[in-house]
Structure formats: structure tokens, C-alpha cells
Amino acid sequence: MVSLNAYLILGAILFSIGAVGVFTRRNVLIIYMCIELMLNAVNLTFIAFSRFLNNMNGHVFVFMIMTVAAAEAAVGLAIIISVFRNKETIYVDDINLSKG
């Protein structure tokens, strides 16, 4: 039997990889993929807790997170397309619309 800690550590590792990717990569598409990876890591934590607490509410949470991820992917990719149409680039260094 695999312990709860093992699943939590795996989720933490995946989340950290995703966070590092968000901070280090400059390609908007890969940043989006890293966000998806972080959502997946959170899903893993929910499922692990739900299994070990023997309570199925976590599965419903994961269902909702998947819905939000799908909506976010659709809207985000639409934004990327429209930015690319105006700026001809997908690298975040060249996209500073709000002069941040």
C-alpha cells in the first residue's frame, strides 16, 4: 500500500515543475501548458486525500477543476491567437501591452 505522503510528494514535485516552467519559459503556449500541469498536480492531491479520507467529495472538486481548465484553455488560447494577430509574436518578452 502506497502511503498518502508519497502521493502528496508526487503532487508537490509536479506542481513545482509547473511553477518553474511558468517563471522560466518565455513562450506563452508552454506557460499555458505549465499551468495545466499545475492544475493536474492539484487534482492528484485532491484524489489522494479523497481516497485516504474515504470521502468522495474530492472527485467532484476534480470534476469542477477539469471544467475550469477546459474553459480557461479555450479562452486563453483565443487570447493568444488574437495577441498573435496584432503583435506577430508569442514570446512574453515582446508582449508588454500594460507596460509592466
Binding site: 477546459a70 474553459a71 480557461e72 479555450a74 479562452v75 488560447l77 483565443a78 487570447i79 491567437i81 488574437s82
Partner: peptide, 10 residues
């Protein structure tokens, strides 16, 4: 809402 937003944005 996401579908409508994506269509309008893209």
C-alpha cells in the same frame, strides 16, 4: 460563457 468568449475573442 467560455465558448462565447473564445468565439468573440478569436
Amino acid at each position: 460563457a467560455a465558448i462565447v468568449g473564445a468565439v468573440i475573442l478569436a
